[in-house]
Simulated assay, not measured.
Amino acid sequence: MPTATNRGVDLYYETDGDGPTVAFVGDVGYGAWLWGWHHDAVAGPYETVVFDQRGTGRSDAPTGPYDVGTLAADLEAVLADHGVRSAHVVGAGLGGMVALRYAHEYTRASTLTLYCTAADGDDIDADALAELSLDAGPEASLSGAFSEQFRTEAADLLDRVTGWRREEDASGDPWEAQAAAMTGFSAPPLYEVTLPTTVYYGLDDPVVAPEAAESLAAELPRGDSEAVEGRHLCFVEHAPAVTDRLLATLDTHTDHEV
């Protein structure tokens, strides 16, 4: 599988499907499993690019600190290595911040879809974020990610998720470095991020309050927001509905691409 390099750091990525490119950027600590549900819906009519952020999965885990600017440069290295000219960028949490910085700094992004993210690290509940870490315990770390009802009804699925997390998720110092990048983030001038952008947020997200996500969407020139029932990984819990909306957005904007 391909590997891109940014300043000596190797970044593992995978691609699938055919058509316009959709690049997925993960949240603090989570491996590529996070995008499995989206990938199944998107790959085919679109090409998907999923990569392990530095510190995660099969990518290198250099000593921190990390910052969002460096993570955006990692995304640029991946897309450049794959020869992508234009990409719809989908980011969750920290990945949403990376997408915002990427759209401001680089030229390949065509639309942004942001899940459970904010414009400023001060809007992140650092304690709630820490409780999502696998280091907090496999079961405890899921309570902030998924609703109690989902954890009960989808217990078998969450057992598989825990297995994937043990294989792919960051922990220890790399997790801390990613978390510090998220809490230390300050968005570029949002009026300069003029791409069509949809911000999805969980109504019961303990990490990013709905008000912070709504404020981000309101400050973007072409931003809008969508509420989703659930917690920080509401876009996984309600993946069928969320991916349907994502595909509708991609189809709308792909019609205008050359």
Rank of each mutant, 00 (worst) to 15 (best):
A126F: 01
R166H: 10
G29K: 07
S59L: 09
W164Y: 13
D81A: 13
R165F: 02
A213D: 04
N6V: 09
L220S: 05
L75H: 07
S147G: 12
L250A: 10
W175A: 06
D18T: 15
A73Y: 05
A227H: 01
G26W: 00
V68D: 01
E226R: 05
R160H: 11
D122Q: 13
A212G: 08
S225K: 03
S215D: 15
A136I: 06
L71Q: 07
V49Y: 02
W35R: 10
G93N: 11
E76G: 05
D67G: 07
W175K: 09
T3V: 15
A119N: 04
S143P: 00
Y30A: 13
P196D: 12
D67N: 13
A119C: 03
A99Q: 04
R151N: 11
E229W: 01
A4L: 11
E211S: 15
L247E: 08
Y66L: 06
G26H: 01
Y115H: 14
A213H: 03
E211L: 12
A41C: 07
G96V: 02
I124W: 00
A212L: 08
A227G: 13
P210R: 06
L11E: 02
T152D: 10
F51G: 02
Y30Q: 09
E131Q: 15
G31Q: 07
A170H: 04
L247D: 03
A92Y: 00
N6G: 02
V208W: 06
Q178M: 13
G230L: 06
A209D: 14
V9T: 14
R165V: 01
G163L: 03
E131L: 15
G121L: 04
P240L: 08
L112K: 09
W35C: 12
D159E: 14
P240S: 10
D159V: 12
H38N: 12
H256L: 11
T63I: 10
E153K: 09
L132H: 07
G57C: 08
D255C: 05
H39A: 13
F235D: 02
L75I: 07
V236P: 00
D120V: 11
H104E: 04
H253G: 11
T63H: 14
A177Q: 07
E139T: 15
A130L: 09
L112I: 10
Y115A: 09
Y12A: 15
R58Q: 11
G121D: 04
A179M: 08
Y115K: 05
S133K: 02
G29N: 06
D204S: 14
P196K: 05
V28L: 05
W164R: 12
N6I: 08
S171M: 09
T70D: 14
P2R: 04
G64Y: 06
G17Y: 09
F51Y: 15
I124S: 01
V161S: 00
L233F: 13
T252I: 09
H238C: 02
L233H: 05
A218Q: 13
F146T: 05
Y46L: 03
G144A: 07
T107S: 15
V193E: 11
P2F: 10
D135K: 04
H82S: 14
D205K: 10
E168R: 11
T183S: 12
P240G: 09
S110I: 10
A212R: 03
G96H: 10
M97Q: 15
D52G: 08
D52K: 12
L190F: 08
V49E: 03
I124N: 00
Y201T: 01
T197K: 04
C234V: 05
